[in-house]
């Protein structure tokens, strides 16, 4: 009988039509701004800069080595090295970025900057709805906007952040031991190098 397949199809779509008013399970749409899909831990969107301690500028891990700038495939990172130095996460005096801009309208969230960073200073964020009404300035983030605390990093990617913190603690312990040994060796020396950071970094996150 011609048309039986058509009738079967019509019955199916009619069932969908009325069913979608009766059972909410049929509607798989997530009403975006009000509802959101729960993010998995490995979610990654645009990069941000991690800082330790309370002050974003003093605790910035980035040492302006510019590897990420060179590696970035769409060339959306712009870094200017500072003239002076400040202690880095381990306590060693290092340069810091005087300017650190990421144009997130260009960024493609490839995570290469994160992979190449030797200082664990740049990590992937989970924020994706960054739309703005200023299409030139609004999407060019400077280092202040990019800086987010280590607690935030621990909150969004706990496993990864714990590994990074453990690595930093080890490094710091090594540096301290080295400093102690140096101090012992130069016992006669009048000045003992003291750790510059007031509290042990990374401890707060644990």
């Amino acid at each position: 009988m011609i048309g039986s397949g058509i009738l079967k199809g019509l019955a199916e779509t009619a069932r969908n039509f009325f069913g979608s008013y009766v059972s909410k399970d049929r509607l798989t749409t997530i009403q975006y701004p009000e509802e959101r899909v729960a993010q998995i831990e490995a979610t990654r969107d645009f990069p941000f800069l991690v800082y330790d301690g309370p002050d974003w500028h003093d605790g910035m891990r980035c040492v302006a080595c510019q590897i990420c700038e060179k590696e970035c495939p769409p060339k959306c990172i712009f870094i200017e090295k500072s003239k002076d130095k400040k202690p880095d996460a381990v306590g060693k005096p290092q340069a810091y970025p005087a300017v650190f801009n990421i144009d997130i309208s260009v960024c493609m969230s490839c995570q290469i900057c994160v992979e190449v960073c030797p200082f664990d200073a740049i990590k992937m964020d989970v924020k994706y709805d960054l739309s703005t009404d200023d299409r030139f300035g609004g999407l060019l983030l400077d280092k202040k906007q990019l800086s987010k605390s280590n607690q935030y990093y621990n909150a969004i990617h706990p496993t990864e952040a714990a590994a990074v913190d453990a690595h930093f603690a080890e490094e710091r312990a090594k540096a301290e031991a080295k400093a102690k040994a140096e101090a012992k060796a130069r016992a006669a020396a009048p000045v003992t190098p003291t750790p510059i950071l007031a509290q042990p970094v990374g401890g707060e996150a644990k």
Partner: peptide, 10 residues
Amino acid sequence: KGLGRIQNRY
């Protein structure tokens, strides 16, 4: 609206 409901959309 109708096509949406037929495809289980809003």
